[in-house]
């Protein structure tokens, strides 16, 4: 046994080297072998499913960005080129387009499961708040992406959408002006939406997902609310709970 270990020890050198300098290996081990309640259920995979949908968007988005041209003259033809000429271009574009809807649906389903399980309660309030911000940013991502094909639906839905932003009190007109890059929707609007859609919002979303997952790992996932084990809930009765029926 000990013989074997020394025989293959050199294989571990790179891992040891990395661990000694970064502690990453320990981190990954902690992540993989941390304990979760014994009775977690399928509904609790929705968070991971949402993460996967986001990663699909990120990957296909980078691929699209290599061929998409964010100016009023070439945007539409470049999308057409991607769809009809490039190898598997239709697949990448199709996945990005439909993945957006899947991402939004999964985000809402995940939120619904968290609500049903009461998993937003102490001490996971901040995890929930970060989640709400992610929903808002996800919808903004959908809004900015919708304009990029620069077709009729895109153009006019966005015109009206920006105008609606303009009706907001105080900041509204400034937001509308900023989004459009001028009085009317124009070529600058497109490059602005593009920058927001592929740099600003994804960076914010990725950062917040990181924070979200950090909190999930730090606090541990809940077990289903009907769990008998204390790892799930507790059979102790809560002080004052009887007097209140709300909640």
């Amino acid at each position: 046994m000990s013989n074997q270990r020394s025989k293959y020890e050199h294989l571990m050198y790179p891992v040891d080297w990395l661990e000694e300098r970064s502690g990453l290996v320990g981190g990954i081990k902690y992540f993989l072998f941390r304990k979760v309640p014994g009775d977690v259920n399928w509904f609790q995979t929705l968070g991971a499913a949402t993460l996967t949908a986001f990663l699909v968007q990120a990957t296909t988005g980078v691929m699209l960005a290599m061929y998409y041209k964010p100016d009023a003259k070439s945007a539409y033809p470049s999308i057409e080129h991607i769809t009809n000429d490039l190898f598997a271009g239709w697949l990448v574009r199709g996945m990005h387009r439909w993945g957006a809807s899947v991402f939004i649906i999964l985000m809402f389903m995940h939120m619904g499961r968290v609500f049903l399980f009461g998993a937003y309660k102490y001490p996971r309030e901040l995890t929930w708040i970060v989640g709400v911000i992610l929903v808002a940013l996800g919808l903004a991502e959908g809004f900015t992406g919708y304009l990029l094909p620069w077709d009729q639906t895109a153009y006019w839905a966005t015109t009206v959408g920006i105008n609606i932003n303009g009706t907001a009190p105080f900041l509204g007109p400034f937001i509308a002006q900023f989004l459009q890059g001028g009085e009317f929707i124009n070529a600058d609007t497109l490059s602005r939406f593009y920058a927001i859609h592929m740099l600003l919002l994804p960076a914010m979303i990725a950062g917040l997902i990181g924070l979200h997952l950090y909190l999930v790992i730090r606090l541990g996932v809940t077990s289903p609310p009907w769990s008998k084990e204390a790892a799930g809930g507790s059979n102790d009765s809560e002080p004052g709970a009887d007097e209140e029926t709300h909640g």
Binding site: K121, Y122, I129, V132, G233, S234, E238, A241, E244
Partner: peptide
């Protein structure tokens, strides 16, 4: 955002 602060009971069922 307010939900966790409006609903502060520990009850999850």
């Amino acid at each position: 955002i307010a939900i966790p602060f409006l609903d502060t009971r520990a009850e999850r069922r």
